[in-house]
Amino acid sequence: MKKTEKLNYNSTMKFANTKLTNNQTNQTKRMTDKAFGLLVKVCLKTGIRASDLLNLNYDQFTENRTAPNTFTLEYFITKTNSKNVVPVGADLMRSIQVYKMECLEAYGTVNGKIFYNYNTNKLYTRVWASQRIAKANKNGMLGQVVNVAGMHSVRRTAVVEVFEQNQDLRVAQAFLGHKNILTTSNYLQDNKTTMQDKLRLALCE
């Protein structure tokens, strides 16, 4: 099985926001698109593995009282039987709250699980999400088309964005909730700035 590849962060975020603002008249399609858009946006902003992301509850997001206008998400990592905590900005929190209100308006109720499919009374699945990512990639909606795309591509895209901002592997490790920093290193194999690169930037420019 071929490894999923990272996507263009800005294009993927724009795609997610477009889905979130979809106002077509067909309620089922409209709300399904919004759920998918929110799923992609949360993944880009938190780096959570799809299987854990799909199990998130609204009440796992709490206000950070020591840092105004920011929030905290604590979630369980099934793969390693551990917990992780990531900060969440106001923009993402606003998207979650708006989606919650739209669910209430559309269905007359709100399930505690964010990614609950009100049409099937089940949670959305990783296969459902990955198929949609693959289709969007194939149609060139996520930036340059890559060979293999799925929900794991969004997770890779998220951590690359974090790493490129500070070049700190331990920050990337904390973001993904990895126990072993070598696992994080493997995610960023093609994006790490080597010591020679750093020297070149310092001495040759």
Rank of each mutant, 00 (worst) to 15 (best):
M141F: 04
T193H: 03
T193G: 06
A158N: 09
N22P: 11
V171W: 00
Y116K: 13
E74M: 09
T66Q: 12
Y124L: 13
K14A: 15
T21V: 03
R156Q: 14
K6G: 02
S95R: 11
T183I: 14
K2A: 10
K198D: 13
N166E: 07
T80W: 00
I96Q: 02
Y187E: 09
N119P: 10
Q196Y: 14
M13C: 14
V160Q: 02
N22D: 14
L56Q: 03
V162R: 08
M195C: 05
Y58N: 10
R132H: 12
Q27E: 13
F71T: 04
V162Y: 15
L39I: 11
D52N: 03
T12M: 02
L39N: 09
G89P: 02
I77A: 00
H152K: 01
T78I: 04
Y118W: 12
T109G: 01
K3I: 12
A172H: 01
F175K: 03
K19M: 11
G150I: 05
V162W: 14
Y75E: 02
M13I: 07
E105H: 06
N191K: 03
L56M: 04
W128I: 05
T157C: 05
L176I: 06
E105W: 00
M101C: 11
I77T: 07
N186R: 04
M151F: 08
N8W: 11
E205P: 09
Q24Y: 04
N57D: 06
S153R: 05
D168G: 10
S82G: 08
F76K: 06
N57G: 01
L182S: 13
T66W: 04
G143T: 03
Q144R: 07
T18M: 04
F76M: 07
C43E: 13
H152E: 10
K2P: 10
L38T: 02
R30H: 02
Y124P: 09
T194I: 00
K45I: 07
L92V: 03
K19P: 01
D33W: 08
D168L: 06
E105L: 05
T72S: 12
V171Y: 00
A174V: 15
N191M: 01
N57Y: 12
S185T: 09
T80V: 04
H178L: 13
A50C: 13
P68Y: 10
Q167W: 04
V42Y: 05
L92H: 03
V88M: 01
M195K: 13
L201P: 04
R170L: 14
F61D: 11
A158Q: 11
T66H: 09
K41A: 04
T66G: 07
N166C: 15
S11P: 01
K34V: 06
G177C: 04
K122G: 08
T157M: 11
K41F: 15
N191Y: 08
Q97H: 11
K3F: 00
K138G: 02
D52L: 02
Q60M: 14
S51E: 14
N69T: 15
V148P: 00
T109S: 12
L123D: 11
F115D: 03
R200Q: 15
T12L: 10
T80I: 09
F175G: 13
L104M: 15
Y9G: 03
A35D: 07
E105F: 00
T66D: 08
L38P: 00
A50W: 01
G89T: 06
S95C: 14
R170A: 14
E105Q: 09
K192I: 15
S130N: 02
A129F: 15
D33H: 06
Q131A: 14
N22C: 13
Q97V: 10
W128D: 15
